[in-house]
Design a protein around this nucleic acid. Structure first.
Length: 423
RNA sequence: GGAGGGGUGGCAGAGAGGUCUAACGCACCGCACUUGAAAUGCGGCGUGGGGAAACCCACCGUGAGUUCGAAUCUCACCCCCUCCGCCA
């Protein structure tokens, strides 16, 4: 949600921003409606003022005079009522338009329509060279009895999976790996967040109403979260924070559920794109300054990179183009790790900042040094999502005999240096 | 699943159709006293909108309704809490 005042005063910037994001929104219609709203509000205010004055007079008046004033007020009441009805209709349209206005992307965001227009800004690590025919993760996990897709779909349906043996061990090792890295940092608050969440935090974070078809909904009208960003951002909903407590950084864990509506043809094999997974997410609330947001954004991205570097997985960072940004995002980096079978980098992390777009909807404010209430800025980035990262680990670390080396950083947690079984 | 009790400013908590322009307290800010602090005293202090300002309007969980007038009465919904039952 943007501030209507900001939209009014920066119409051209908002229109250009929407265009850059390839989002259709009629700002002129919104502003015309807003003019109507303001005019009508003024006349309602005026009527109310008369009514309030009369109310005091009635209380003090004698019986006969009382009746006269009441009679006069009855007429006023009729006009007021019809004005209020018009106002309600205007506000309904006004709100519907307001939630479709996208946040303005940063200057540094490149133009473009979709992910193919994202620009690489950094590359790290050596791509693996194999002196044998490398396998893809689907086959590697199956051959090493680390995953079972057939029974997965028998039990859980399309995109269902079981992880077993070293597949399960690898996830548990990664759990401990990532937990330890973040537990050693006193600036991050460890958090286990709910996945079954009421609709308000989804509204607040921008997943509703736009992306409802990608969410699972319960018979109680709650939704399952696709990311801990939703409950973690909801944590301080409708609260006022102290400036001295900012920034607040969360290291949040939750199971994640995604319907993957609209991606039926994509990544249908294996565990790259699945309905159910777990994820550690970094979420930051900071004071309302662009510089602060940028600083934390770079830091969140670097935190994720440090994990990949320790795992020695070759990756690159792309800056997402305008057309690949969500409604509320100002700027986003995706971190993508090399997937040998596809000879391309595939996304493992997504790092973005929102300025006050989310906190406005969630009503999370803080009192600044002058006692003024301001909306916090918010950011988030993946820390580690599983089992997706397994796809890149097993493909990059595969050996000629079909087994998989354990990344050095995980050997302590796995208690061995090779996974799987020799054929 | 059953029964009951509640949602009022940052917190706590009165208020039960018309000086509610929402009490008292805590917290916070300013001043005085003090070497400094604590304590004490005096004053200020909700949020949002409109306006150059004076000032005006709205907001007591949400939405409808009754009324000249609603925090207060009526209805619906949402949320929280307590007890019983079930349960990892």
């Amino acid at each position: 949600m943007l501030d209507i005042k900001f939209i009014r005063e920066n119409k051209d910037i908002v229109i250009a921003g929407a265009k850059k994001k390839h989002i259709n929104v009629d700002i002129d219609a919104l502003l015309a409606l807003d003019d109507k709203r303001r005019t009508l509000q003024a006349s309602i205010d005026e009527a109310r003022a008369k009514q309030n004055a009369a109310s005091i007079a009635i209380a003090a008046a004698e019986n006969s005079e009382k009746r006269i004033i009441i009679g006069r007020m009855q007429t006023l009441k009729e006009t007021l009522k019809s004005d209020e009805e018009s106002m309600q209709e205007i506000m309904k349209q006004w709100r519907a338009l307001m939630v479709t206005v996208p946040n303005v992307p940063d200057m540094s965001v490149p133009d473009g329509e979709s992910e193919v227009d994202n620009k690489e800004v950094k590359k790290w690590g050596e791509l693996p060279k194999f002196d044998f025919e490398p396998k893809d993760h689907v086959e590697l996990l199956l051959a090493n009895d680390m995953a079972d897709y057939e029974r997965g779909s028998k039990v859980a349906g399309f995109r269902g999976y079981f992880l077993k043996n070293d597949g399960a061990r690898l996830v548990w090792a990664l759990n401990r790996f990532v937990e330890e890295r973040f537990m050693n940092r006193s600036d991050f608050i460890p958090m286990i967040a709910p996945s079954l969440v009421r609709k308000e935090p989804f509204m607040g974070t921008g997943y509703l109403p736009q992306s409802e078809e990608d969410l699972y909904k319960t018979q109680d009208s709650d939704y399952l979260t696709g990311t801990a960003e939703v409950p973690t951002m909801g944590y301080y909903m409708d609260e006022i924070l102290e400036e001295k407590d900012l920034p607040i950084k969360f290291f949040a864990f939750s199971p994640c559920f995604r319907r993957e509506a609209g991606s039926y043809g994509k990544d249908t094999k294996g565990i790259f794109r699945i309905h159910e997974f777990v994820k550690y997410e970094q979420v930051v609330l900071c004071e309302a300054s662009h510089e602060e947001s940028v600083k934390h954004h770079e830091e969140l991205t670097a935190n994720a990179e440090a994990l990949l570097q320790e795992l020695k997985l070759p990756y690159h960072v792309v800056i997402n183009c305008g057309g690949d940004l969500g409604l509320g995002q100002v700027k986003k980096y995706d971190i993508e790790v090399w997937l040998p079978s596809e000879k391309q980098y595939r996304e493992t992390h997504s790092s973005s900042y929102f300025h006050d777009f989310q906190s406005r909807r969630l009503n999370i404010r803080y009192r600044d040094e002058n006692g003024v209430l301001r909306y916090v800025h918010s950011l988030n980035n993946t820390a580690l999502a599983m089992p997706r990262i397994l796809t890149q680990i097993v493909e990059n670390y595969q050996r000629a005999d079909g087994t998989v080396s354990v990344p050095e950083a995980l050997q302590g947690y796995m208690g061995k240096d090779v996974m799987g079984k020799v054929q």
